[in-house]
Amino acid sequence: LVRYRTISKIPQITLNFVDLKGDPFLASPTSDREIIAPKIKERTHNVTEKVTQVLSLGADVLPEYKLQAPRIHRWTILHYSPFKAVWDWLILLLVIYTAVFTPYSAAFLLKETEEGPPATECGYACQPLAVVDLIVDIMFIVDILINFRTTYVNANEEVVSHPGRIAVHYFKGWFLIDMVAAIPFDLLIFGSGSEELIGLLKTARLLRLVRVARKLDRYSEYGAAVLFLLMCTFALIAHWLACIWYAIGNMEQPHMDSRIGWLHNLGDQIGKPYNSSGLGGPSIKDKYVTALYFTFSSLTSVGFGNVSPNTNSEKIFSICVMLIGSLMYASIFGNVSAIIQRLYSGTARYHTQMLRVREFIRFHQIPNPLRQRLEEYFQHAWSYTNGIDMNAVLKGFPECLQADICLHLNRSLLQHCKPFRGATKGCLRALAMKFKTTHAPPGDTLVHAGDLLTALYFISRGSIEILRGDVVVAILGKNDIFGEPLNLYARPGKSNGDVRALTYCDLHKIHR
């Protein structure tokens, strides 16, 4: 019993810090008490220290592992850092350059016999395009090294910054494609005289377009951006097909006994025919423009016929181009109408809503002055909100995010209106959640004399007048207030005048 009563005193000691020596009952000389009392004092002292730490809000209350900052290894790049964003855009520009100039170089340097010394005699450094290609190869190699040090988000939505895990993730992902696209074939085969082989191998750079397509997928929600990307894709495919079309004609031209190829026909049409040795002929500019003209006309199913396939190889390629053109029509131009419709969806919704308003007016036989006010209010409210119901949009977000959005939407009023000066951010967040926005066209009466005042109004834009009878008592403008002081009276009061809008007004109100 003594032991039980001794232990039962522990909660009292913990909360009230009572010393055991003052209790005459606990001072009985028993061996059990002498053993338990020192333990009680020690526990009391420890609990006292913990309570003191909690009340003082000291940093040592938290466990040590929670006080440590997340460790980022040296030379690790955050995937959302500004440097990584700028670097990704730079790589994107280099990939676009590669997609345009690599097929052009591979096709127009394929057994090209233009006048001038061969590239091997001039030297590697004197070729501007080769120098640019070398810079692109170096940048792609540097990009691989950067990807080995860039964080990523795993399946659990955690940012991984450990170098080993980053390397394994990159090896399992895009490393092989990036490595093949970054191989400097110019340096590996330079001086061997195989410019045709170098041009063909350099087309491996186009593998990076797969990554670019995935990154550009984030802009699919913007109709104008999608339309622009589709047109660029169409032009890029036409450019690639033009390079292939020229390569076919250029390879067949020296081996044909009869002059029936499209390059021969082009030379005869523009007065620059090929001679018996295969030299001469149109310039590279004429060849490229004509090839691009043929691919565009074939892809769009126009086909004027002034550039036509004559050999079997050219006919087979033309059939493939027609098939590609039909697929592009289905996948690209078939979506253009939907994209344009999405661009004008706001206008369509406006006309639909206006039609419903006019049908309501016609069905209920609203008189002319009231009908005009109804239409003007709808037009003004639509121009202010673009038909978007803010309350319906915010309803799907958590309250903390709703408060931040409301604070942002009402920031101008909260910053410049005098009653809100000096208020804490928590108070402003709470008030912003209570605001209701209303609009009024010129001549609209917001409050009639004798109406119950259940709200306090803040003028965000425009001006109003307060009338008693036919006498203008006051004219209020931006950041002015009218209405009933909230919670100042037990019952809502009545208006002693009319409140009429002089201009288009936007008002925020808080109800009782």
Rank of each mutant, 00 (worst) to 15 (best):
K285L: 13
I284N: 04
C232E: 01
G325H: 01
R205N: 01
C400W: 11
V142L: 10
H264W: 04
L414S: 01
R342G: 10
V100W: 01
Y384S: 10
W87S: 01
Q372G: 10
F140Y: 01
D143S: 01
P163L: 05
L207S: 13
L110H: 07
T150A: 03
I260H: 15
I141V: 07
I388N: 06
R373I: 01
Q372A: 04
H73W: 04
V136M: 03
S331Y: 09
L78Y: 06
S194Y: 13
V159Y: 03
K66A: 07
G261K: 01
Y288E: 01
G249V: 01
S105M: 07
Y246L: 01
S277R: 09
N312P: 01
G123N: 15
R356T: 12
H448D: 02
I146Y: 01
K272M: 03
G305N: 01
H364M: 03
F175D: 01
F333C: 04
V132A: 05
I183D: 01
P70E: 14
Y377E: 15
H364A: 08
Q341E: 06
M390E: 03
G278E: 01
G396V: 09
T437A: 11
V302G: 01
P398A: 01
Y350L: 03
L230V: 08
C126G: 01
I146P: 01
W245T: 01
A423K: 02
Q253P: 03
V210Y: 09
I332K: 03
M251P: 01
K84Q: 04
I72C: 06
N275Q: 03
P103I: 01
Y104V: 01
I340Q: 03
D217L: 09
S283D: 10
S412E: 12
T424C: 09
K434P: 01
M251V: 01
L230Y: 10
K84E: 01
Y384T: 06
L292K: 01
I96N: 01
R342E: 08
K287S: 08
F333M: 05
S277L: 05
A224G: 12
A224C: 14
P367L: 01
K418S: 09
T424Q: 13
P419K: 02
L109R: 14
L230G: 04
Q127P: 06
K84N: 05
T233W: 09
L90R: 01
F296I: 13
I270E: 01
V86K: 03
I332W: 04
L129S: 11
T347P: 04
S283W: 01
Y97T: 01
F190A: 14
A291Q: 01
D257I: 11
L409R: 03
A432L: 06
Y274E: 01
E195P: 06
F190E: 12
L92E: 03
F171M: 14
K111A: 08
F296L: 13
A381Q: 11
Y350T: 01
T385H: 15
L188E: 07
A235G: 11
E314C: 01
E359C: 01
F435L: 09
S412D: 12
V336P: 03
Y170G: 01
N275T: 09
P184Y: 01
C243D: 01
L200Q: 03
T150G: 01
G281L: 01
A238W: 01
L413K: 01
V159L: 05
V321F: 03
K272F: 01
E158S: 09
C427D: 03
G396P: 04
Q253L: 14
M322Y: 01
Q68G: 13
L93S: 05
S105I: 04
H239Y: 03
I177M: 04
A119I: 07
I237L: 13
E195Y: 10
G123K: 07
F435K: 02
F333R: 03
R349V: 08
S308C: 04
K395Y: 09
I183G: 05
R214S: 05
T300I: 01
L431K: 03
R342K: 04
L129C: 04
F397V: 08
Y246M: 11
T437N: 04
A155M: 12
L92V: 05
I244R: 01
R349L: 06
S383P: 08
F108S: 01
T76F: 04
G223C: 11
A235L: 09
Q253C: 06
R218Q: 09
T203I: 11
Q415L: 13
I366S: 01
H73I: 05
P398N: 07
R71K: 15
L176N: 01
L134T: 03
A130H: 05
L292M: 01
E376K: 15
M322E: 01
L263P: 01
L201Y: 01
F435V: 07
L343I: 05
A106V: 09
Y274Q: 01
Q402Y: 03
L93Y: 01
P163G: 09
L200W: 06
T233R: 04
C243R: 01
G123F: 15
C122M: 01
G193P: 12
P128F: 15
L200Y: 05
E375H: 14
S301I: 01
E376G: 10
V100L: 01
M322W: 01
Y350V: 03
A247D: 01
R342N: 04
G303V: 01
W240A: 01
K215S: 08
E252Y: 04
R356Q: 03
A423D: 01
A338W: 09
I141M: 05
T438M: 13
E196H: 15
W174A: 04
L201M: 01
A167R: 03
L413P: 09
I260Y: 07
T120K: 12
H73K: 10
I340D: 01
K285A: 13
L216D: 01
Y293S: 01
E112P: 14
L109E: 01
Y274S: 01
I166N: 01
C232F: 09
L94Y: 01
L394N: 03
I260G: 06
E112F: 05
H380E: 07
T76Q: 05
I248R: 01
L401F: 04
L414F: 14
G281P: 03
V142W: 01
N156D: 09
A403I: 01
I324Q: 01
D178R: 01
L92T: 01
V131E: 01
A224M: 11
A381N: 13
F294K: 01
A330C: 03
T98K: 03
L93W: 01
L446A: 02
N265F: 04
V307H: 01
L145S: 01
H239V: 01
G396A: 13
Y97K: 01
S276F: 03
P103R: 01
A204E: 01
A291N: 01
F378E: 07
I339G: 03
S308L: 01
R259P: 15
I361H: 01
R371E: 02
F296Q: 01
N386L: 07
V136G: 08
R165P: 05
T300F: 04
Y350H: 04
W245Y: 01
P82L: 08
L266Y: 03
L134A: 06
Y65T: 07
R74C: 06
F397W: 08
